[in-house]
């Protein structure tokens, strides 16, 4: 049994929230750089160059990359031999978000109730997903999610007979509908299988995978490559103003499902696909 003081979690969460809203991970910086080289439209190229310049200004002057610093989505992978001390874990995570968003001059974008809608003024609560894993470590992954792209995300409860073609159609439909609203070039997270909520959670989680890395499952890897090509052939382009770079990556996660179903979730993310992990 290893003891971890929840204050360590709080401080890590706070630092990570600030860091990732100002400095994009290297995989995403790289993906954007490649996009500038690939884009054929002049206006598209110009927009992508502005996005690259935006990243430089954000880091150098500590101005958030995007004003929508997101709702903090946090994945906690907790080793089963860990015992948290000196407080409630969930309170500590939210305290970390509060500290990070207030001290880091990040935007407070969370309302306390979906219909009454009073701003909580500290960006809490976070959306937290826990999983218990072997070992005595804790891995924290934070992915602040902006809502321009979140609003364009979809869940399709397909029939088994719809098969892989149905899945491809679902992905293309979601991306087409998202168009310029989701701040392309986008990153597309797809969850296939499981249940209604499981596929959505997979679609969210797989957005935290490094851009450029593929699934270990051969047919899934091929599907990722094919869908990226098909999406880029839609011509939506950077900022939705036309071009051949509409998505930077398509990341797909799968899970066993029921004999009667084929759930597919598409979680769309903009080019500011923020994800950061730390192990304690």
């Amino acid at each position: 049994m290893r003891e971890i003081n929840v204050a360590c979690v709080r401080d890590a969460v706070s630092e990570m929230c600030i860091r990732i809203n100002h400095v994009l991970s290297e995989d995403m910086q790289c993906a954007l750089k490649n996009a500038v080289a690939c884009e054929k439209s002049e206006l598209g190229k110009q927009i992508l160059s502005q996005l690259e310049e935006n990243l430089v200004v954000a880091e150098e002057e500590m101005i958030p990359i995007c004003q929508d610093t997101g709702m903090a989505v946090i994945f906690m992978e907790i080793g089963q031999d860990v015992h948290f001390t000196d407080g409630n874990l969930e309170d500590a995570i939210n305290e970390g978000v509060r500290k990070g968003y207030v001290e880091g001059f990040l935007r407070k974008s969370v309302v306390d109730d979906p219909l009454i809608r009073n701003n909580t003024k500290d960006n809490t609560p976070a959306v937290i997903h826990y999983s218990v894993v072997p070992g005595n470590k804790v891995k924290i992954t934070i992915s602040p999610k902006g809502f321009g792209s979140e609003n364009m995300s979809r869940v399709f409860m397909l029939k088994p007979a719809d098969g892989i073609e149905g899945v491809k159609n679902a992905i293309l439909t979601a991306v087409k509908d998202a168009g310029p609203n989701a701040c392309p070039p986008m990153v597309i997270g797809v969850g296939i299988g499981g249940t209604f909520e499981k596929c959505a959670l997979m679609a969210k989680h797989v957005l935290t995978r490094e851009a450029g890395k593929h699934s270990d499952i051969e047919y899934v890897k091929e599907l990722e490559t094919e869908m990226l090509k098909k999406i880029n052939e839609l011509g939506i382009g950077p900022a939705g103003l036309g071009g051949n770079v509409t998505a930077l990556a398509v990341n797909i996660e799968t899970y066993p499902t029921h004999i009667a179903g084929l759930p597919v979730a598409i979680n769309i993310c903009c080019h500011v696909n923020r994800h950061i992990s730390r192990e304690i």
Partner: peptide, 30 residues
Amino acid sequence: GKGKRSADVMNAIVRNGSVYFAAVGGAGAL
């Protein structure tokens, strides 16, 4: 802003001789 507008808005833009500009989404620092 950024992104598509409804048909009602597009009609109102024409009716009033207005214009809808887009700024680049996700370039908030710049």
